[in-house]
Simulated assay, not measured.
Amino acid sequence: MNKTSFDETVALGVQLCHTGKEPLYQQLAGQIRKLILSGRLAAGQRLASGRALAAQLGVSRVTVVTALEQLVAEGYVEARKGSGHFAASDLPEAVMQAGRSKVSAPPPAPARPVRHLPVPFQPSGPDMRLFPHRRWARLMQQVWARPCDELLAGPGAAGWWPLRQQIAGHLRAFRAIECSPEQVFVTPGSVESIEILSQTLFEPGQAIALEEPGYAPVRRAFARAGMRLLPVGIDEAGLKVAALSACRPEPRAVLVTPSRQFPSGMTMPLARRLELLGWAAAQGRYV
Rank of each mutant, 00 (worst) to 15 (best):
I167A: 13
I177N: 06
V184Y: 08
M140W: 05
Q166P: 01
M140H: 09
G159L: 09
A157H: 14
A153W: 00
W144N: 03
A145W: 02
I177E: 15
P181L: 09
E178L: 07
A137G: 02
R129I: 03
D127G: 04
R138Y: 00
P181G: 06
W160P: 00
L152Q: 08
L171D: 13
Q165W: 10
P155D: 14
R115N: 00
M128K: 07
L130N: 02
G156A: 07
H133K: 11
A176F: 08
W161L: 15
R129A: 11
S180G: 14
A153N: 07
H116G: 00
V184W: 09
A145S: 07
G159S: 08
L163Q: 14
W160D: 10
P132K: 06
P147L: 02
A137K: 13
F185K: 14
V184C: 13
F121N: 06
W161S: 11
Q122D: 08
P126N: 05
Q122K: 01
A158R: 15
A173R: 12
R138S: 00
P162W: 11
V184R: 06
G125Y: 02
R146V: 03
V114G: 01
P132I: 02
R175W: 04
A111S: 14
E178V: 08
A173L: 12
Q141V: 01
Q165M: 11
R175F: 05
E178I: 03
Q122E: 09
H170L: 13
W160A: 04
Q142E: 07
P113N: 05
G125K: 03
I177M: 14
W136M: 01
A173H: 05
L151V: 01
L163F: 13
E182S: 15
A168I: 10
G169K: 07
W144I: 06
P181E: 10
V143G: 02
V114C: 04
Q165R: 14
L152D: 00
P181M: 08
G159P: 11
D149E: 13
A157S: 15
P181V: 07
H170P: 01
G154A: 03
C179F: 03
F174A: 12
H170S: 13
P181D: 07
R135P: 00
H170G: 04
Q141H: 07
R138K: 05
F185P: 01
Q183H: 08
Q165N: 12
C179I: 13
I167Y: 09
A111G: 09
R112L: 14
F174Y: 14
L130Q: 06
P123K: 04
V119T: 07
A137H: 05
V114N: 01
Q165K: 12
L171W: 14
R146W: 03
W161C: 09
L163A: 15
